[in-house]
Amino acid sequence: MFIVMFRAILLYILIIIAMRLMGKRQLGELQPSELVTTILVSNIASIPIEDPNLPMVLSAVPILTLVVFEYLMSSSALKSKRFSQVLSGKPMVIIDNGIINQKTMKKLRFTNDDLMESLRSNSIFDLQDVLYAIVETTGKVSVMLKYDAQTVTPKMLSLKGSDPVIPSIVISDGKVIKEALKTCNLGRGWLNKTLEENHYQISDIFLMTADVNAQYYIVPKQKTEKQNG
């Protein structure tokens, strides 16, 4: 029993390292080669956990080999466009200038329902609003709307303004995050002064965000009522 437990822990660590080495990708956005590697790694890892008669090395070596191979494949794909197309395919246009490319849809075995589902997932419910729809190599559909169906932007209205800034979490659950303060070019002095003005202690704060313009937002901790009896 302990063997299985230790093996599960070791393989978990190994797979985390393997996945980190392969790079950041969301599971839904995996390229075909990455998907194959992920499926193989998960299958190979489960074998020695289920069968204690099998040495763990027989699982670790293929996992590491797949990581190396995946790295080599993605590096080669980065250098050669042709190789990249062989490995991952290329994006396919299924709606071209407002016209559905039925031939491409047939080639991709993409049904009308699939098309409508993809559009709906992009918050588009009317097919006539679509100018271009492209099936990416990950299987995701990217859509460009016709001009009259696009959301109005400040640019369209010739409105001027400044770019927004990203707020960072400077206090999380009563703990000051020094790196975030530094990123916002704010100091501990500013933080203490702000909290004092709002009649709070650091330990009272559940969440506090701030940005480079010293704009902040405070969420105090909810006080739990003690029950009597």
Binding site: L21, G23, V61, L64, T65, V67, V68, Y71, L72
Partner: peptide
């Protein structure tokens, strides 16, 4: 760093 790690893993395997 990733390249070095991959080379080390290749050698290890």
């Amino acid at each position: 760093a990733r390249k070095i790690a991959i080379i080390c893993i290749s050698l290890l395997v």
